[in-house]
């Protein structure tokens, strides 16, 4: 009885014909691909993503004012570019970005940009307290999203988040996290640039 040649059963046939170099290549290529994919994610927050609403018109919603009666009337804002910032009193990065937002709201008023600050999952009193402490701006509408409908409509992942809408009502970009003045201004500039038809 003759036993067959030692054969591990792996593809390629008998030992002499087995293409060992092929296996080495597969191992090497696989390692490079895996390394590349994992390494590309270093330093990135896996929760940031691109909003699918970019390029879409801003949905209509009704939002009550934080400190006055009545709700924000979007008809009055027609023809203006919008910076919509979601914030909360308990949100730490919101405090650091607040001065930048206030400054920009003053600086861009004459270019037809209006700012809307939407309070996210917070109590009215604490939100007002935040504004008392960190300051209010003109050219700024402060409203509340009491039932979290608006954040669902806009696909908000957390606070702070800022949306930039152009004069035709199209959402142009979204920034997740605390924003600084330079980034804020570049997004506003982009929103003020008309889309090529």
């Amino acid at each position: 009885m003759t036993e067959p040649l030692a054969d591990s059963g792996l593809p390629g046939g008998s030992p002499k014909a087995r293409p060992v170099w092929l296996y080495y290549t597969i191992i090497g290529v696989a390692a490079i691909i895996v390394f590349g994919v994992f390494a590309s994610r270093f330093g990135e927050d896996p929760r940031m993503n691109e909003s699918p609403l970019i390029g879409q018109p801003l949905p209509q919603f009704t939002l009550d004012y934080l400190e006055q009666d009545g709700s924000l009337n979007f008809d009055e804002l027609e023809g203006k570019a919008l910076v919509i910032n979601f914030w909360a009193s308990w949100c730490i990065p919101c405090r650091s970005e607040h001065p930048a937002l206030n400054a920009a709201s003053a600086g861009y008023e004459d270019q037809g940009v209006h700012f809307i600050g939407i309070v996210y999952q917070d109590s009215r009193d604490r939100a007002i307290g935040f504004l008392d402490q960190f300051g209010r701006a003109t050219n700024y509408s402060y409203v509340m999203d009491s039932d979290s409908r608006t954040i669902i409509e806009l696909g908000v992942f957390g606070v702070p988040e800022t949306y930039f809408v152009d004069k035709d009502g199209i959402i142009r970009s979204r920034y997740q996290g605390g924003i600084d003045l330079a980034t804020l201004e570049s997004h506003i500039q982009e929103a003020l640039t008309p889309l090529t038809p």
């Binding site: 609403l53 669902i152 409509e153």
Partner: peptide, 8 residues
């Protein structure tokens, strides 16, 4: 939901 949040 995916129109607002993405496929993820």
């Amino acid at each position: 939901f995916t129109a607002r949040y993405g496929d993820g």
